[in-house]
């Protein structure tokens, strides 16, 4: 019983069995998190550095909590306020940290492929916590875990990913993962935010009409409009985006079925998702956050294996 990979760089590299193993292990960790003492000694001798070159609230807290629940020692590193501003390279920074005997690296970086580069040069196990517009594997896994928990299965599930597909690493990880687990995928949003050849490349449906997308799907994974990654104007205004692609309760109620609403956070309330929809019973956004800790515990636990005996 072991993952086929040494690092968790992306869902792209995982097999169907890997994903199954992570999700099943996460189910047991979720039970651990309900106990009076929510902590197990599995990673008692492991030191993990959380290397965040880009802002994060949920992911960083979630990883840190997951590490602590597994009894690992953790160090937090954020690029702002560090020697990165003095011009130290990524590899130098990481090698310096590793020389202090660190076993695993959790890394977020604004450059796509940064963790892949690191994996080639350092011996520690690396978990990608989001790299540029490439992948965010633990988010993909926790999304899948939450879907499976709510609807019982992934196979045959109809999932619509709605919004800014072009700049979204969450979308990429979701597409890779759901495809491998046999779900049907649709991407929906304005044509300017959907990559041109995505239909051919990933064999997904493309829909430009929000209502049609919602009528088709069981689950709507609504993405955040990433204002920080929009260096060109791809839609005329947030107000117009919201009018065409914003989801509200009224729209959801007018459908003939109950669509499960997901969002990786942070929500731009009133843009892609209105408050009445985000806080409704159909929304599992807070369950996603809760499940995130269990899924990250599973990933850390499974990647820590076979570290060799004490001598």
């Amino acid at each position: 019983m072991q993952l086929s990979v040494k690092h968790l760089l992306g869902i792209r590299d995982l097999t169907h069995q890997d994903i199954q193993l992570i999700l099943d292990t996460a189910t047991e960790f979720k039970e651990v998190l309900q106990r009076p003492i929510k902590k197990v000694p599995s990673l008692r001798d492991v030191t993990i550095v959380n290397l965040f070159y880009e802002n994060s609230t949920r992911t960083r807290i979630s990883f840190e909590l997951a590490e602590k629940r597994l009894s690992a020692d953790t160090i937090n590193f954020t690029a702002s306020g560090s020697s990165v501003s003095k011009g130290e390279t990524l590899l130098d920074t990481v090698n310096n940290i590793l020389s202090m005997k660190v076993d695993m690296v959790v890394m977020r970086h604004s450059a796509s492929g940064a963790p892949h580069f690191l994996a080639k040069h350092i011996p520690a196990a690396i978990i990608n916590a989001g790299d540029g517009i490439n992948e965010h594997p633990t988010q993909g896994l926790l999304d899948a875990f939450s879907m499976r928990e709510r609807l019982g299965k992934l196979e045959g599930l109809k999932v619509a990913i709605i919004g800014d597909i072009m700049h979204s690493r969450v979308a990429m990880s979701n597409i890779y993962l759901l495809k491998k687990m046999g779900a049907e995928i649709m991407v929906a949003g304005p044509p300017t935010l959907i990559p041109k050849y995505i239909q051919e490349a990933f064999d997904v449906r493309v829909e430009y009409n929000l209502r049609k997308a919602l009528e088709w799907c069981d689950v709507a994974n609504v993405l955040r409009i990433q204002l920080e990654r929009q260096n060109q104007v791809l839609f005329s205004s947030l107000r117009e985006y919201s009018l065409a692609y914003g989801i509200n309760k009224q729209l959801l109620d007018s459908l003939n079925k109950e669509v499960v609403i997901m969002h990786p956070g942070p929500i731009n309330r009133g843009v892609e998702l209105d408050s009445d929809a985000a806080d409704s019973k159909q929304s599992i956004i807070l369950n996603q956050v809760e499940n995130g800790v269990a899924v990250r515990m599973a990933a850390l636990y499974l990647l820590s294996g076979g570290r060799g005996s004490m001598n």
Binding site: T25, E28, F29, V32, S42, D45, Y301, G306, R307, G308
Partner: peptide, 11 residues
């Protein structure tokens, strides 16, 4: 756990 990893069962 250092030498071999096991898949968990349900508690």
């Amino acid at each position: 756990v250092r030498t071999s990893l096991h898949a968990p069962n349900h508690t």
